[in-house]
Nucleic acid binder design. Structure first.
Lengths: 137, 137
DNA sequence: ATTTGTACTTGCAAAACGCAAGCAAATTTA
DNA sequence: TAAATTTGCTTGCGTTTTGCAAGTACAAAT
């Protein structure tokens, strides 16, 4: 897979060139929630991504420095995917998506309770969540 | 165009179902910068969206309550597209994308200067920009 | 030694994309 | 006032991407 050509110099456009498809942010979401995922973990998510699409997205996200692969401590057959610093820095963006969705649609109860926590102290939540994610890098 | 089926109840996934493709956020970007756009204005953007894709996205964004169409004051041949409140509320997200891009890539000079302003007072910038956008609704 | 688990790859049909051309109504120009 | 241009799309069609199912290679468990 060659490097995708960028459509313009616009930061929004360039960002979308990296993670602006239907699946990448869901992969990143899983990593933000679970901290570390195996290939199989991603497949378990509700959206049911196809295995070939998952493989392609993981490769592209890795090529773009958003995620990294590492050995699973328990087994040589497993692979651990994690967010890089660059990936972790997408957390504020992810939170804004949640806040927007919260304003215009009905969220599942578990998400709703986290959102309430975020709304009380957004900066504090981000700082804490980022530091949790950095622990496993 | 029928209503797109949602892949899960996840707020991230549902949001992506609405604007999570390669073009929608660029259309929204144009509207945030220009406040109001004609069909032709969108076509002028650097990324060179195809006319059929543009028409499809505008319809889908309108169906999802992100943008609205109105008559152009100068001409019956022209159409004015604007952001709705729901669309305007994507501004914080758009800003976070810019901040992320600023951190990990080189921005064009004009964007860079706005970003510096945003970094000084993010909340103030958002409040002001939102109110500017609401003026033309 | 055989079965199961894990991380992918491959084949193929269906859908989406992207380019070019076409079109109807409004507007401008001659 | 007739012709040309602008504007906002639509249509056809070849190319690319997606998505489902099946297959494969290696590790691990039985």
């Amino acid at each position: 897979m060659a490097t995708t050509k960028k459509r313009s110099e616009c930061p929004i456009s360039c960002s979308l060139d990296v993670w602006g498809d239907k699946w990448s942010l869901l992969i990143i979401r899983d990593l933000m929630i679970l901290k570390q995922c195996t290939y199989g973990d991603f497949l378990k998510s509700d959206e049911k991504i196809a295995t070939n699409i998952l493989a392609a997205r993981l490769l592209m996200l890795e090529e773009n420095g958003i995620i990294s692969k590492s050995n699973h401590p328990d087994s040589k057959a497993k692979v651990l995917y994690k967010l890089t610093l660059k990936g972790i820095d997408l957390l504020p963006l992810m939170i804004e998506i949640n806040l927007w969705a919260d304003k215009y649609s009905i969220l599942p109860a578990d998400r709703k309770s986290i959102l309430e926590e975020i709304k009380k102290d957004k900066e504090g939540f981000i700082k804490n969540a980022k530091s949790e994610l950095k622990k496993v890098i």
